[in-house]
Amino acid sequence: MIWFLTALIIAIIGITLLLRGKSLAYLDSEPLTPAEHNPSPAHREALRMIREMNRAGKGLRGRERLNAMRAFMDSMSDGLALVSEFRPAQPETAPRGEWVIAPNARPSRRILYIHGGAWMAGSPRSHRAITDRLSQLANACVFAVDYRLMPEHRYRDGLRDCQSAYQWLLGNGPDGPATAEFMAVAGDSAGGNHTLSLIAWIKEQHLQQPDAAVALSPSTDLTFTAPSLRNNVKTDPLLGPAFRPLTRLPLPLLWWGTFLFFRMSPSNPLLSPLRADLSGLPPTLIHVSDSEMLVDDARRYTHKARAAGSPVELRIWPGMFHVWHIFTPWLPEADDAMKEIGDFLNRSEQLEAQ
């Protein structure tokens, strides 16, 4: 009996270490102190909307809480002065999603956009502010994929939807079959996680690489070992209230919980793209705020990718909140960030043409 218990304990410890994976603390640099900044007058209104989002499911539990959060996120595009045409994809020939086509967009220029929402909420509708502005600034037709969400589906199902959508977009535009002359992948938060996982998968499958990738406040490592996940919990108005209880749990419990929820080890590169081979990736731009919980996720990814020779640019914005881009164009800081993304995509196309 003693030998059995000893073996069981050793097995549990061994599996726990496998769930954690290799320590990546060597990628950390000096802790960031949020920089002084002068927020725009609209910044206060954005913070008010974030507080409303955090209260959307207050007092509710389970499915009711999730549905309330999903409904609130979808309502964020209501009343916006959008200029693009929003065209539903034809389900018999295309992945689920919608085309976002600005008046100046060229069908041969395409962007696959992967929305955020903790893999459980969000939709093409909830992120129309971003996709509308992206189509305008990049002169591209944006396909916002409506990937399968948890918990109704597995994490891997949503990622497969993104993989299928990318392959389909290479040969299909908004008007039917046609080759893409310029192809990019972009996403925010959980969608940024899918974006970074996707570009690593594309390389491994020897598929045509995108000309560029953009990840906004991405989650890169589900082992939750980056220092800012705890250091910035009080300065992150969006993620802090929701994830503060989790930061108080011992890491082994988080690793096992992640394994059970995602049905995948938190150290699996499909779930934690930071742990993939980051060599040979396309030009990639990462945006993150110095005061959000995921800033060290982005810094670790950038350090490792650059060391592997991949052209990754990291832009750390002062005093913003998680995925502030969703308040474009009425929040000046968000529109400035979107313009920088447009410049990056246009610059990537010029480099590809040389």
Results as ranks from 00 to 15, higher is better:
Phe86Gln: 04
Ala35Pro: 00
Leu24Tyr: 01
Leu294Lys: 10
Pro34Lys: 06
Gly309Tyr: 15
Thr223Glu: 09
Gly319Arg: 04
Leu331Pro: 03
Ala81Met: 07
Lys22Glu: 14
Lys339Gln: 11
Ala25Val: 03
Tyr301Ile: 15
Leu82Phe: 09
Arg244Asp: 03
Met338Pro: 01
Ser77Arg: 09
Met320Trp: 00
Tyr301Arg: 06
Leu239Trp: 01
Thr328Ala: 14
Asp188Arg: 15
Arg70Thr: 06
Glu333Val: 07
Leu281Trp: 00
Gly79Val: 03
Leu260Cys: 15
Arg263Gln: 10
Glu204Asn: 14
Pro266Gln: 10
Ser265Ala: 10
Val83His: 15
His43Pro: 05
Asp290Gln: 04
Ser126Asn: 04
Pro124Met: 13
Ala35Phe: 00
Thr284Cys: 04
Arg156Glu: 09
Leu278Ile: 10
Pro250Lys: 02
Phe86Val: 04
Asp157Tyr: 11
Ser108Ala: 10
His287Ile: 11
Gly97Ile: 04
Ile202Cys: 00
Ile111Met: 10
Val100Thr: 06
Ile10Arg: 03
His194Ile: 05
Leu170Trp: 14
Ile2Asp: 10
Phe262Cys: 07
Gly257Val: 05
Asp211Asn: 15
Gly257Phe: 02
Glu52Tyr: 11
His43Gly: 03
Ala186Pro: 06
Met76Asn: 09
Gly319Tyr: 04
Trp201Leu: 15
Glu313Gln: 14
Phe261Ser: 13
Leu246Asp: 02
Ser219Tyr: 00
Phe4Pro: 07
Arg275Ser: 06
Asp161Lys: 03
Ile101Cys: 13
Met1Cys: 15
His322Thr: 12
Ala184Trp: 01
Gly240Pro: 06
Ile316Phe: 01
Trp3Tyr: 12
Leu270Ile: 12
Lys304Tyr: 08
Ser108Gly: 11
Ala46Val: 14
Cys141Pro: 02
Leu24Arg: 08
Ala212Tyr: 02
Asn231Thr: 13
Ser272Tyr: 03
Pro250Trp: 02
Ala46Lys: 01
His206Arg: 08
Asp236Arg: 05
Pro174Leu: 05
Arg63Asn: 11
Gly171Arg: 09
Gly21Ser: 08
Asp161Cys: 06
Phe261Arg: 12
Thr179Phe: 01
Arg110Leu: 09
Lys339His: 02
Leu249Trp: 14
Trp168Cys: 08
Leu80Asp: 13
Asn232Leu: 14
Ala226Thr: 09
Ser164Arg: 10
Arg160Gln: 15
Thr220Lys: 03
Arg106Tyr: 10
Val83Glu: 10
Gly240Asp: 07
Ile114Tyr: 00
Pro95Ala: 08
Leu159Glu: 00
Ala35Lys: 05
Thr302Cys: 07
Gly173Arg: 04
Arg263Cys: 08
Ser40Thr: 09
Pro266Phe: 04
Ile326Tyr: 02
Asn54Leu: 09
Glu204Tyr: 01
Thr225Val: 15
Pro266Lys: 03
Leu216Arg: 01
Pro103Ile: 05
Arg61Val: 12
Gly280Asn: 15
Val100Gln: 06
Ala89Glu: 01
Ala178Trp: 05
Ala212Cys: 11
Arg63Gly: 08
Leu17Val: 05
Tyr166Phe: 12
Leu24Asp: 13
Glu352Phe: 01
Ser23Tyr: 11
Gly59Glu: 02
Leu137Glu: 13
Arg65Glu: 07
Gln205Asp: 14
Lys304Met: 15
Arg347Gln: 13
Pro41Leu: 13
Ser265Gln: 06
His153Arg: 04
Glu340Met: 14
Val142Asn: 01
Ala178Val: 11
Arg156Tyr: 12
Leu222Met: 08
Thr16Pro: 02
Ser291Asp: 15
Asp28Cys: 10
Asp28Phe: 07
